[in-house]
């Protein structure tokens, strides 16, 4: 059964191939399906194409071949503008570090997706942006930091603010690209616990990427990118 034949999946990849420009093939994934509502851990060594895959799922990059379906939408069939709007409305994204716009407060950073995109704002329904921010800030324990400048926050605090932003207005899919690799062990565990709780509350699908295999036990599903990606295997051979 092909991935495309699985309606209702959060992510369905079929025969995906990708290279940066005329460069070497970075990704060659025959099939990958992630169910809605699952918490997935994707690991692989540095440079194996994890961030590239996330870029394709978020619609920032365009597949060279094959199909990428996210939340039942064919990313390849969308125009650039449609992909941007889709990402803004349905996807929360957390980077490894430097997640925040330095000249905005934590509050304004969290508010950004709803302010930039009417679709994301509409997800809040009757709830005001302010109420939604306070809600998500309380979940991630950053209420006291809301009016601090982004540059005044510690790395751990920054990551929590970034997670709050990704979770604001409950997007269906939350993508985290190594969000804990710049945190120490205690901070990392606290962050993962908060993230897991908030994602569960939002009923979102979580795709969490890391090179650190030891984090995998906390997730429903563990995947290894090198074993999914034929391009790496060819490289290694």
């Amino acid at each position: 059964m092909t991935a495309a034949g699985r309606p209702g999946a959060a992510i369905a990849i079929d025969g995906l191939q990708f290279s940066y420009g005329s460069g070497p093939r970075v990704l060659d994934i025959p099939s990958l399906v992630i169910d809605r509502g699952s918490r997935v851990f994707l690991h692989g060594p540095s440079g194996c194409g994890k961030t590239t895959l996330l870029g394709l799922l978020a619609g920032v990059l365009h597949a060279t071949n094959g199909s990428v379906r996210v939340l039942d939408r064919d990313m390849n069939a969308m125009s650039g503008g449609q992909r941007d709007a889709f990402r803004a409305e349905h996807i929360g994204y957390v980077f490894q570090q430097f997640n925040l716009i330095p000249y905005l407060s934590a509050y304004d950073n969290i508010a950004l997706p709803c302010r930039l995109d009417a679709g994301r704002r509409a997800r809040l329904g009757a709830v005001s942006i302010d109420a939604a921010i306070r809600d998500v800030a309380a979940q991630l324990d950053i209420t006291a930091l809301l009016h601090h400048s982004a540059t005044a926050l510690s790395v751990g605090q920054q990551q929590r603010v970034a997670a709050a932003r990704a979770l604001l207005a409950s997007p269906e899919l939350v993508i985290c690209d190594e969000p804990t690799s710049s945190l120490d062990t205690d901070r990392r565990d606290a962050f993962l616990a908060l993230l897991a709780r908030s994602v569960a509350q939002a009923n979102a699908t979580l795709l969490f990427v890391s090179h650190d295999k030891s984090l995998g036990a906390r997730f429903d599903v563990q995947l290894s990118l090198p074993s999914l990606n034929r391009a790496t295997r060819l490289d290694a051979a």
Binding site: A58, V60, G80, G81, D84, A85, R87, A88, E89, Y93, F95, F98, N99, L100, I101, L112, P113, L116, D117, R120, R165
Partner: peptide, 8 residues
Amino acid sequence: VLRAVGAR
């Protein structure tokens, strides 16, 4: 970051 949060 702006692109990630939905900026075209």
